[in-house]
Amino acid sequence: MDKTLEKYIPSASVIPAFELIKTNNVHLKIVNERVTRHGDYRKMSNGQHQITVNASLNKYRFFITLIHEIAHLVAFQKFGRTIKPHGKEWKFTFQQLMLPFINPAIFPSHLLPLIALHFKNPKASSDTDARLSLALKQFDPPNDKNYIFEIPDGGLFRLYNGKIFKRGNRRVKRYECVEVATGRVYLFNPNAEVEFLK
């Protein structure tokens, strides 16, 4: 398992991450990309703890996702299964698990301030933290996608599911976009990746 982990996470994090996996009796599955999520945790009917993480993630995003999912398991064990999945108990647990890893042996020094800021109050997804998400994106392989904030006002774009939208105005942090087929208005994070049409 530790040899497999070397392919997916920063090398300095392999041994301590493997210890977390062993200590918490996690069955880690590395899976093909799911567009709607980076990873998930579930307790199986046989009592085993299964965590899945997308194979397509860069090593820093993969690592943060892995610790995110382990935090679900640890928080449920410590505080009970009635807690909110991304509530204060999970946030506290995620912070505690992540703290030893926020150092230059694991993350590039220019990412450290953004990661430290994110973990003052971690979100349900690192993608909702636009600055951290954009900083992590630089380690992804190039693709033909654009961010919502790069689409011109009134420009059309397509989502992974084929739906086409027209970009509208920015409302505080997110953009109002109209689904062309239905006229319904949706809010998009500025760092959502889409296919620019015109």
Rank of each mutant, 00 (worst) to 15 (best):
64 I>F: 07
66 L>V: 05
66 L>W: 02
67 I>M: 01
67 I>V: 09
67 I>Y: 03
69 E>T: 02
70 I>W: 05
71 A>R: 01
72 H>V: 01
72 H>M: 01
73 L>Y: 00
73 L>A: 00
73 L>T: 01
74 V>Y: 02
75 A>F: 04
75 A>D: 00
75 A>W: 00
75 A>C: 00
76 F>T: 00
78 K>E: 05
79 F>H: 03
82 T>D: 11
84 K>W: 05
84 K>N: 07
84 K>Q: 11
86 H>K: 01
87 G>H: 06
87 G>A: 06
88 K>E: 14
89 E>H: 09
94 F>W: 11
94 F>A: 05
95 Q>W: 04
95 Q>Y: 08
96 Q>C: 08
96 Q>E: 07
96 Q>P: 06
96 Q>H: 10
96 Q>V: 03
96 Q>D: 13
97 L>R: 03
97 L>E: 04
97 L>H: 01
97 L>P: 01
97 L>F: 03
98 M>N: 05
98 M>C: 06
99 L>P: 10
100 P>G: 03
100 P>N: 03
100 P>E: 05
100 P>Y: 05
100 P>T: 08
101 F>N: 01
101 F>E: 00
101 F>P: 02
102 I>N: 02
102 I>S: 00
104 P>T: 04
104 P>A: 03
109 S>G: 03
109 S>T: 15
110 H>A: 09
111 L>A: 02
111 L>Q: 04
111 L>I: 04
112 L>K: 07
113 P>M: 09
114 L>E: 08
114 L>W: 09
114 L>M: 12
115 I>D: 05
115 I>H: 06
115 I>Q: 08
116 A>N: 15
116 A>M: 14
116 A>C: 14
117 L>Q: 15
117 L>C: 13
117 L>H: 15
118 H>C: 08
118 H>P: 07
120 K>W: 10
120 K>M: 14
121 N>F: 13
121 N>W: 12
122 P>A: 06
122 P>M: 08
123 K>D: 05
123 K>L: 14
124 A>P: 08
124 A>E: 04
124 A>V: 04
125 S>D: 03
125 S>E: 09
125 S>L: 10
126 S>K: 03
126 S>F: 08
126 S>G: 08
127 D>M: 13
128 T>Q: 15
128 T>D: 13
128 T>C: 14
132 L>W: 06
134 L>F: 12
134 L>E: 14
134 L>R: 14
134 L>A: 12
134 L>N: 14
135 A>G: 14
135 A>P: 12
136 L>I: 14
138 Q>H: 09
138 Q>D: 14
139 F>R: 09
139 F>S: 07
139 F>P: 11
139 F>M: 13
140 D>A: 11
140 D>E: 10
140 D>C: 03
141 P>Q: 12
142 P>D: 07
142 P>S: 12
142 P>C: 07
144 D>Q: 13
145 K>Y: 11
145 K>G: 09
146 N>D: 10
147 Y>I: 12
148 I>W: 04
149 F>P: 10
149 F>V: 12
149 F>C: 14
150 E>P: 06
151 I>D: 05
151 I>L: 03
152 P>K: 04
152 P>A: 10
153 D>K: 14
154 G>K: 13
155 G>W: 09
155 G>A: 09
156 L>C: 12
157 F>N: 10
157 F>M: 12
158 R>P: 12
158 R>Q: 15
161 N>I: 13
162 G>K: 13
162 G>W: 11
